[in-house]
Design a protein around this nucleic acid. Structure first.
Length: 679
DNA sequence: ACCTTGTGAATTTTT
DNA sequence: TTCACAAGGT
């Protein structure tokens, strides 16, 4: 056994570091706490919160003040709440939730900011229309007003035909568009881009009028949507940060209210937070000094684990000056072999040492192989590491497509992805199908999830009735009726999801009992259930605007989706719920952030996304970082951080299988991982 | 031979 | 959204 003996000297030093944070809190000296992977960063954050609670509670309570702790994700919020325990003094939440809480009372001021935003957007769109080459044909037409009016009048016809192929689209538009404007249809994608902008202009103008007339009185932040709907007074995540910055920047009164109410602000995972958030905190910091009120800001994180380009990363040092850096160099997670490699990857001033005196005993090996060798490679280590339920193997791949394939629900993923809805909304595919957060699943994935859940529950004789039926349903049933219902439910054909659905619908049409019907209505989330309505509902969502002659093939596609082997549905269900009951678990590199695993296999390749050269570029420039600038440096750091995050997940054993040719950059690999082995 | 148009494929993650 | 490339036009 290793990693059991804490070194007394290290523990002493760790305590001293924590004391340094406490001292900074006492003197309201803002800090940036840097700790590498596995250092116990969250622990330090929580100890700091506890310190403030234990030493300032009375004073804070007396002045009706609170401590703010902001995190990047809801998962992190929940973890901190759980570890901290129940306390009213600390407001733990995501950045967005807290900011909206702080600014939403200033309705009038937010509307002012909104008006400015709308005007700016209008100017931007207008200048695009005036200058971009693809709008030349539009600039050339004389009677723009007639054209715009006509298109706005025909809005619904336009959207009905928008997803058709170019020829079909042209025919449909020419149907109502005067011949003098037909020249605009030369290039269909340019035309669509034009119409999108014209509609936007109209929407924004209407919105401005409604504000003027007093019909629209407030701006609303809606976290469920990823896009602004400015014309409906609704903003999304990025614009929330923008408005918060504008409001706080503009009104010193707002700054002072925040400072006086929240004298302690702690930021978890600062490297991931947006630049705007750091700017907001800097405004508060500057103002607190100006008015001589105490404010403590503590950033907790690690620049080397910044893997999203929206995060501030290293730029924080330019944006928020005057922070006292407190570094923690200990590692509480990994063996010395792993620590040595991750230190080499990050290659900066944080050079970790283990907190344990018995940290030897791990291993890291880099292999060169091919795509065909992946399965064999994993099987090899499954045997060599004696992988079982208590000693799992975690395999990191680059894309969700591969995660779906290896986690054995490839067909569900691919069939959903291939529907017109997901082809149009290609950037929603992973969120809506693979989210671990049920509320983020798309409408149809959510329906599938409910069906799978329902099917599993009625199959399991141990499931309590309260878990199958909602309370308001079973409350009204007599015991006899309840029993009857259970017998009925258990009689449902369950060979495939398609049969399952059909069987349920059959019961629905046969039964006279309203409460039975209600159970089924709730399951499908439909007010009117008929033999066809659930499938029609799926059709309308996955195949919007489908042509009459294509309906049958679309219906067939839905049947195929529902007939995918039910084991796949279970695998998908378990993935969504993060139930890891297989011996080998697959993740994306990105998705493993914050996690730790005993045994890790990383499958690596040249290509990622648009970049066919991602990892080669990093390895080639490993000793050359100081000469890189601009986009090149950014690309280098992105890859470095991703590699750092993925390798630092390992506690004991780490293997990397590179499935492309490596001769052109093997020096860089050897500098980090040592000898390269053939597989 | 060159230009325009249409089509399909390409990442990760969070709020 | 952006890019590469195939198909088709001049």
């Amino acid at each position: 056994m290793s990693l059991t003996q804490e070194s007394p000297e290290a523990i002493q030093e760790e305590k001293q570091i924590q004391q340094n944070i406490f001292d900074a809190i006492e003197s309201y000296q803002n800090i940036i706490f840097n700790a590498g992977a596995g250092a116990g960063k969250t622990y330090s954050l929580i100890e700091s919160l506890k310190y403030i609670i234990n030493n300032k509670a009375e004073k804070l309570a007396h002045h009706n003040q609170n401590i703010i702790c902001i995190t990047y994700t809801n998962v992190a919020t929940n973890e901190i709440k759980e570890r901290l325990g129940n306390t009213k003094l600390v407001k733990v939440s995501t950045i967005h939730e807290r900011l909206w809480d702080l600014i939403s009372p200033y309705r009038k001021q937010l509307v002012e900011i909104h008006i400015e935003k709308l005007s700016e957007e209008l100017e931007i769109i207008q200048s695009e229309l005036d200058t971009e080459a693809k709008f030349q044909v539009y600039r050339d037409i004389h009677d723009k007003v007639t054209f715009i009016d006509l298109m706005i009048e025909s809005k619904s016809i336009y959207y009905q035909n928008k997803d058709k192929n170019a020829a079909g689209f042209k025919t449909a538009i020419k149907d109502f568009l005067n011949e003098e404007f037909h020249g605009l249809l030369g290039n269909v994608s340019n035309f669509k881009s034009l119409i999108g902008k014209l509609y936007k202009i109209k929407n924004y103008q209407i919105c401005l009028e409604k504000i003027e007339q007093g019909e629209y009185k407030q701006v609303v932040y809606d976290a469920r949507y990823n896009n602004d709907r400015l014309h409906k007074m609704m903003i999304s995540h990025d614009t929330l940060l923008e408005y918060a910055y504008s409001l706080i920047d503009r009104y010193d009164m707002v700054k002072q209210i925040i400072i006086d109410k929240y004298p302690f602000i702690l930021v978890d995972e600062y490297q991931d937070t947006a630049e705007k958030v750091i700017r907001i905190l800097k405004l508060l910091d500057d103002h607190s000094q100006q008015i001589n009120h105490n404010l403590f800001i503590g950033y907790f994180g690690d620049t080397a684990q910044n893997i999203y380009d929206t995060g501030v990363g290293k730029r924080i040092f330019e944006l928020h000056t005057g922070l006292t850096a407190i570094d923690k160099r200990f590692n509480r997670r990994s063996t010395n072999e792993i620590i040595q490699v991750i230190n080499t990857i990050r290659n900066d001033t944080i050079n970790q040492v283990s907190i344990y005196s018995d940290a030897d005993g791990g291993s890291v090996v880099f292999y060169q192989g091919s795509e065909d060798s992946i399965d064999d490679f994993i099987e090899h280590y499954q045997a060599e590491w004696e992988i079982n339920q208590d000693n799992k193997l975690h395999c990191l791949v680059l894309t969700n497509e591969l995660v779906a394939k290896y986690n054995k629900f490839e067909n569900i993923f691919q069939k959903l992805k291939a529907t017109p809805y997901y082809k149009t909304n290609w950037n929603s595919v992973t969120t809506e199908i693979l989210s671990h957060d049920l509320s983020k699943l798309g409408e149809i994935p959510n329906l599938l999830y409910r069906l799978v859940d329902f099917k599993q529950k009625i199959e399991n004789p141990k499931t309590p009735i309260i878990d199958i039926l909602s309370e308001k349903t079973y409350k009204h049933l007599t015991f006899a009726k309840l029993k009857e219902l259970i017998v009925l439910l258990r009689s449902i054909n369950r060979s495939s999801l398609k049969n399952f659905v059909e069987s349920i619908l059959h019961i629905y049409s046969e039964t006279e009992i309203q409460n039975f019907k209600r159970v089924i209505e709730e399951l499908f989330d439909l007010e009117v259930v008929t033999t066809d309505s659930p499938i029609d509902h799926m059709l309308s969502r996955l195949f919007p605007n489908v042509e009459d002659d294509a309906i049958e093939s679309a219906r067939q596609t839905i049947y195929e989706l529902l007939e995918v082997d039910f084991d796949e549905y279970i695998a998908w269900f378990e993935f969504v719920n993060k139930i890891e009951n297989k011996e080998i678990i697959y993740h994306t590199y990105h998705g493993t952030k914050g996690e730790e695993y005993e045994n890790v296999v990383i499958v690596m390749q040249n290509k990622f996304g648009f970049d066919s050269n991602k990892f080669p570029y990093y390895f080639n420039n490993y000793s050359n970082e100081s000469n890189l600038t601009g986009d090149n440096l950014e690309k280098f750091i992105n890859t470095k951080n991703l590699l750092y995050v993925s390798c630092s997940r390992a506690i004991k054993n780490l293997r990397i299988l590179y499935i492309d040719e490596i001769t052109n950059f093997q020096n860089g690999i050897e500098a980090i991982f040592g000898d390269i082995h053939e597989y």
